[in-house]
């Protein structure tokens, strides 16, 4: 049985998210009557579906991703072809973008995935390290991590909206009620997202271990090490304004940063990959 730890954690977090959603649905039913149940269910599915579609489109557009030319990057296409077959998924669309930093990410689902790599990543890493990164991203697609995050954020947003309206509709509609509704909505979303982000951090470890099973742990560990070392220096990323605020060892390394991080610390990932 694959990823028993992940399945157990997903059962716990999934139950919690369902409980949050159920409470929100009950509040809506109490406010508007049982007749709104079909509307609530259809609306929830539509809400998450639109978030998924817009998210994928926005992510690719925001970095200006273009198709990775097969003639120029034949080796990468071959690596992904091989890894995809081995992992039992369709070969995802491969794209390249200039992001100002070494980076790669996956969007989409198992049958319609896209992996984007940055030019800076391809310049800085050796071919075997790039393969480690690609294996990690393919593992995200195989494990449906993107879909799970969209679902988690969707539930958090729905619960937050319901909390907001519950505060508004039970108040006197004065200024304090409007203010309180906004604040409560944001706080509720933060609370639900703590659980979603906790599972996201674990999913990173799982994707790392899947990548290690395919190509060994050292290439990905070496890639992470190289990039985290590079973030200490002001290199080619200095030209990008966005990058100045992005360093791994930046200002927010306290408890809050750990609680709301979607990724575990790079040092821990490297340590696990090398174990």
């Amino acid at each position: 049985m694959r990823h028993v730890g992940l399945k157990a954690r997903m059962a716990v977090v999934g139950s919690l998210l369902f409980a949050f959603y159920a409470v929100a649905a009950v509040v809506l039913l109490a406010m508007f009557g049982e007749g709104v149940l079909p509307l609530v269910l259809v609306g929830s599915v539509l809400f998450v579906g639109v978030q998924y579609k817009i998210g994928k489109w926005a992510a690719l557009r925001s970095v200006g991703a273009e198709d990775l030319p097969e003639d120029k990057y034949a080796q990468i296409h071959q690596q992904v072809e091989y890894l995809s077959t081995d992992m039992g998924i369709d070969k995802p669309r491969l794209m390249i973008a200039r992001m100002g930093v070494p980076n790669a990410f996956a969007v989409g689902r198992k049958a319609a995935g896209t992996v984007v790599v940055s030019e800076e990543l391809l310049r800085r890493l050796e071919p075997d390290e790039v393969e480690g990164v690609l294996a990690h991203e393919l593992a995200h697609i195989r494990n449906r991590d993107v879909v799970m995050m969209v679902l988690g954020q969707g539930i958090a947003s729905i619960v937050a909206i319901v909390a907001q309206w519950a505060v508004l509709l039970t108040g006197d509609n004065d200024l304090a009620d409007f203010f309180l509704a906004i604040v409560v909505g944001q706080i509720v979303q933060l609370i639900v997202m703590v659980f979603v982000l906790a599972i996201s951090r674990y999913r990173e470890y799982v994707a790392d271990s899947d990548a290690a099973a395919e190509v060994g742990g050292e290439p990905l560990a070496s890639a992470l090490k190289k990039i985290s070392r590079g973030s200490d220096r002001t290199g080619d990323s200095a030209i990008d304004e966005q990058v100045s605020a992005l360093c791994i060892f930046g200002e927010e390394r306290g408890l809050l940063a750990k609680l709301f991080a979607s990724h575990p610390p790079v040092e821990k990932r490297i340590e696990r990959l090398r174990q």
Binding site: Q51, I54, G55, A58, A59, S62, V63, M99, V101, P102, N103, A104, F105, A106, V107, L121, V133, V146, M149, V150, L151, G152, Q153, G154, Q189, L190, M193, V196, L197, S200, A223, L224, I227, S228, G230, S231, S237, Q242, A245, L246, C247, I248, G250, E251, E252, L256, A257, L259, F260, A261, S262, H263, V266, R269
Partner: peptide
């Protein structure tokens, strides 16, 4: 930064704007 992570998680891929392996 933490608030932004919460707002963008699931809407934009977590790796999108940072260096690889970071938020």
């Amino acid at each position: 930064g933490s608030v932004l992570t919460v707002q963008t998680a699931g809407r934009l891929p977590p790796d999108r704007s940072g260096e690889y392996g970071t938020d």
